[in-house]
């Protein structure tokens, strides 16, 4: 029938951009990256297949230490973002009055897309030796000599939490906002105290938002480049820096590709574990935010 043919043609036409995008820009490049990472440079312009790049990674403690450090600090940042962000999201969604709710949420949404670079730049101006905080403390006589707050792990963590926390709060507010207040009231009404209501009713309900926020935040942190470098200085040892180093500075694409694959595998495993442990799926978490 003619109508069926038109329907089929429409489906193919709609499929074309999707396939071109996913295949040419996502699947094929990643396959290419994996293949490249399996190529060993034996002599100039002579290559052979092998796991050499990965063996180099294992044999060089600096590399895998950096990956572990990146991973553990990313988990720390994710946890901090959740702990700091959840009360804020809960306040906006459930406690603030109708008027202030929209305003507060807007305050979170507007700076959402400000560049990492500007955020890090702002922190540099605040934290460095000649920065606002040091000068301020000096002028009030609280400290004697200027203090350098930058170039340590604490600064990196603060900067990272700052950069990603809105990506935690915004999905949380959306989820909590969709929760019927009467559910919480029913929880109290049936004899629950604040703690049990929080643990048994609110947190399970907000789980998709929590998981979604954690995934995005973890991914953004582990993949961030600017914040650790600018706030942590030369010795921030973030894994993305290693990748950049291999690719651009040493022009060793093979090992850079291996590092890239390792980072991808690492973040994927963590995200997969998170989804499994929380019993969520990618489609009902990230897709909803």
């Amino acid at each position: 029938m003619q109508q069926k043919d038109i329907k089929r043609l429409t489906l193919y036409l709609l499929f074309a951009p999707f396939v071109l995008w996913i295949f040419l820009l996502i699947l094929l490049p990643h396959i290419g990256m994996v293949i490249l990472s399996l190529r060993e440079k034996i002599a100039p312009r002579v290559y052979e297949f092998g796991l050499g790049n990965y063996i180099d990674f294992i044999n060089e403690p600096i590399y895998w230490n950096t990956l572990l450090r990146t991973g553990s600090m990313s988990l720390l940042v994710t946890a901090l973002a959740l702990i700091i962000g959840f009360p804020i999201a809960y306040y906006i969604a459930k406690i603030a009055g109708n008027r202030s709710r929209g305003g507060l949420f807007l305050l979170c949404l507007i700076p959402l897309w400000v560049s990492d670079l500007i955020r890090a730049f702002g922190w540099i101006l605040l934290l460095r030796e000649t920065g606002v905080i040091s000068t301020f403390l000096l002028s009030y006589g609280i400290i004697e000599t200027p203090i350098e707050f930058l170039y340590n792990d604490a600064a990196v963590v603060v900067g990272l939490v700052y950069t990603v926390i809105l990506f935690m709060i915004v999905p949380l507010v959306s989820t909590l906002d969709g929760m019927d207040n009467s559910m919480i009231e029913a929880g109290y009404n049936l004899g629950g105290n604040s703690f049990t209501v929080m643990r048994r009713i609110i947190i399970p309900y907000a789980m998709p938002g929590i998981v979604s926020g954690c995934i995005v935040v973890f991914m953004l942190t582990a993949g961030s480049y600017l914040t650790p470098i600018l706030l942590g200085g030369k010795n921030s040892s973030w894994f993305t820096e290693q990748i950049y180093d291999q690719f651009i500075t040493r022009f060793n694409w093979e090992s850079g590709a291996a590092f890239g694959f390792l980072l991808l595998a690492f973040t994927s495993i963590v995200i997969w574990l998170g989804l499994k442990l929380s019993g969520q799926t990618l489609a009902n978490t990230v897709a909803k935010s």
Partner: peptide, 12 residues
């Protein structure tokens, strides 16, 4: 959305 941007960059 959950692939680090750095990796998208190098793979392309």
């Amino acid at each position: 959305l959950v692939i680090p941007g750095v990796i998208l960059g190098i793979s392309i």
